[in-house]
Design a protein around this nucleic acid. Structure first.
Lengths: 238, 238
DNA sequence: AAAACCAAGTTTGCATGCAACCTTGGTTTT
DNA sequence: AAAACCAAGGTTGCATGCAAACTTGGTTTT
């Protein structure tokens, strides 16, 4: 991270994703500047970039507000992600993988096996899985050799994180999404997808990837709707 | 267009797409500023945005250079576009269209019929078709109700334009891509896609859209490779 | 002769000042 | 009383100045 502006971009982005600035909140340049201990210039640069990433909405001469993110936006992000990662799987299967690519995927699969070899499912295993999962999806983008996919996916991937911040990590619902069983299923999905790609089965690899993402989409939907119903009941009780 | 910065963004973007700044060219802030008659501030804002759109590459403390765009980048852009517009067609078919959507598509089809009713294919018809074609693809994004598709497609759509600027509009090859026959085929594709969507045939609508975009991708590939071969021969002759 | 070094000039990064615009509360007008 | 108006305060938009980083050509060192 070389320049102050880059740091400011990351910092403000994190705050938005963590829900510290709620939907519709007006981001005041001078306040942010004194808050982060820099001048308005890097703040302004950062806001422009974040508006470009669709996290903020820009109103000329009036500033930036935090974009409101509905459940439907997150589900739509999953649709786009599943479709594009499906594309990646198909072209990888069709064009074939080089040796480095094959080695990368086999290594990721092996590390996954390692995680699930023990029946434990504590914070260490969960963190290891999260990292490995990211690796898998980035390896796909890389192996596809399509230079557009990475920047697009980078933006799309932000949106689910906004919702993660609304789900309490200790809640039943969050735990329901991140059970060992569900993640083991994800791991098996990855195995099948890699097998299909290595066999050159493009259509099958694409379909498997779509379904893989779709399953997680529905898992998140279920968890979030359960949370919504719960808070509604609480509201009625109060 | 309210602020100077917005104008500067558009102006520099157009210059890049028109090929006025070649691949790898270093964009010098002070030069651009005096060139456009503004200070460095809006220039810097604009460069950041364009780097975010992947038209420029940013090197911290060293500035921005124009991203080099190869044929493969444009073909990849078509892959992404076909895939995402295929997604749009599928969800439209699955969720169903509202009356306004149906009216919009039927209107576009009707205007297409109007263009091809006469056998003429002059600049007026070509311009009318181009406008109508854009309308069709934007109507799709709108009817899909997926808020991510529009900003993604906006970026992806830039890349073919860079290559259009390299194809001489008077050349045989450019004409070969934009013949009345090819565009009539596109119009018929649109008709079939709309029919499939209205019948709720999601998988078919998706496949048709993919193939529609793919056909145009291959047309551009052929035209550009022909141009490349031609210039190679000229180089050898010289 | 090649590599490392150095200093002057150039370019970008950030801070700050001022002008333009927008928001607001209160006042006037109808 | 409602709507239009107006002025003061506040916020953003753009210009400019200075410091930090990079680039360069030439010089010294090995």
């Amino acid at each position: 991270m070389v320049t102050v502006t880059e740091q400011v971009i990351s910092e403000i982005r994190e705050r938005i994703l963590d829900g510290k600035y709620g939907p519709g909140a007006h981001l005041h340049e001078a306040t942010l500047a004194s808050d982060l201990g820099v001048s308005r210039t890097p703040i302004r640069d950062a806001l422009r970039v974040l508006a470009n990433e669709d996290l903020l909405v820009y109103y000329p001469n009036r500033g930036y507000i935090v974009r409101s993110v509905e459940l439907s936006d997150v589900l739509d992000a999953y649709d786009v992600r599943g479709t594009l990662e499906g594309l990646a799987c198909r072209v990888i299967a069709e064009r074939g993988m080089d040796d480095a690519g094959k080695a990368a995927f086999l290594e990721i699969i092996e590390q996954g096996e390692e995680i699930f070899r023990s029946p434990e499912w504590g914070p260490a295993q969960q963190a290891a899985w999260r990292a490995l999962n990211s690796q898998f999806h980035y390896a796909l983008l890389e192996a596809s050799h399509n230079r557009h996919l990475d920047p697009i996916m980078r933006q799309i991937r932000f949106f689910p994180r906004i919702f993660d911040s609304r789900l309490n990590p200790d809640s039943d619902f969050f735990q329901k999404v991140h059970t060992r069983e569900q993640r083991l299923r994800s791991h098996h999905d990855h195995v099948h997808i890699v097998e299909a790609m290595m066999r050159g089965e493009g259509a099958r690899a694409e379909a498997l990837m779509r379904e893989h993402v779709y399953a997680n989409r529905e898992l998140l939907r279920g968890a979030f709707e359960a949370v919504s119903n719960q808070t509604e009941e609480e509201d009625q009780a109060a």
